[in-house]
Simulated assay, not measured.
Amino acid sequence: MKDLLRVALVLALIFASTFVIIQGTGLVTEEGVRAFLADAHAIHPGWFVLLVILLLVVDLLIAVPTMATILLAGYILGPIVGGAAAATGLMLLGTLGYGLGFRFGRPILARLFGDDTRLAGIEAAFARNDLLVLFTCQALPILPELSCTLAGVARMRFARFLLGYGVGVVPFAFIVAWGGSASTAADPSPAIYTAIGVSAALLIAWRALRRRTA
């Protein structure tokens, strides 16, 4: 378990460092992303779908306001198309993170630990709660990227990964998109209540998972 926590800490620092570097250079800022999305009404719906998907995928490397992006997708595209675009982007993000962990994580850890027994221990530690971790991974920033990458590092079966991750993020995408679609400029309360409710539910689930693994 200690080795798994060590790997998770290293990965979290890597993901956080990309955010700090990019924010520090001023190339991409959260305010800039929000302003760009606010002008999205002028974009053709087809292009906006691609934009939503792209923004959610690059969240693997650049901190993107995920909840705000999905809410706006629902507001502009409606709950079905907006939810589908968001779900597609999140699934692609997860698959890419899993692939990076699967392809590059194991060789790096082999050099770091040099012990197959310890690598097997990392796999076993993650496997004990892999589905629950993936299901609740939208509860905290960086956790989705971290969880998906760890799933790849731990050699979780891809079908099992898709099940656990998809069961969590697909309903999340459609629920949040619905909150955006039900809102108007004059009454943004559905989006606000949806964001609060979904975040609270995921945080409660995450805390329950932490108590289980403590």
Rank of each mutant, 00 (worst) to 15 (best):
R103H: 09
R103S: 11
F104W: 12
F104L: 08
R106V: 13
R106D: 10
P107C: 03
P107R: 04
P107S: 04
A110W: 08
R111Y: 08
R111G: 05
L112A: 13
L112P: 03
F113R: 06
G114R: 03
D115Q: 05
R118D: 11
R118Y: 09
I122N: 08
E123K: 11
E123N: 13
A124V: 06
A125N: 07
F126H: 05
A127K: 13
N129I: 05
N129Y: 13
D130L: 02
L134D: 01
L134A: 02
F135E: 02
Q138D: 09
Q138I: 05
L143E: 05
P144T: 05
L146Y: 06
C148M: 03
C148P: 03
C148Y: 04
A151H: 02
A151F: 03
G152V: 00
A154Y: 02
R157L: 08
R157A: 11
F158T: 07
R160F: 06
L163R: 04
L163F: 13
G164L: 00
V167P: 02
V167W: 03
V169R: 04
V169I: 13
P171W: 10
P171F: 09
P171Y: 09
F174E: 12
F174R: 10
I175R: 10
W178T: 15
G179E: 12
S181G: 14
T184W: 11
A185D: 14
D187W: 15
P188R: 12
P188D: 13
Y193D: 10
A195V: 07
A195L: 14
I196D: 11
V198N: 14
A201C: 05
A201L: 08
L202G: 06
W206T: 02
A208F: 00
A208E: 00
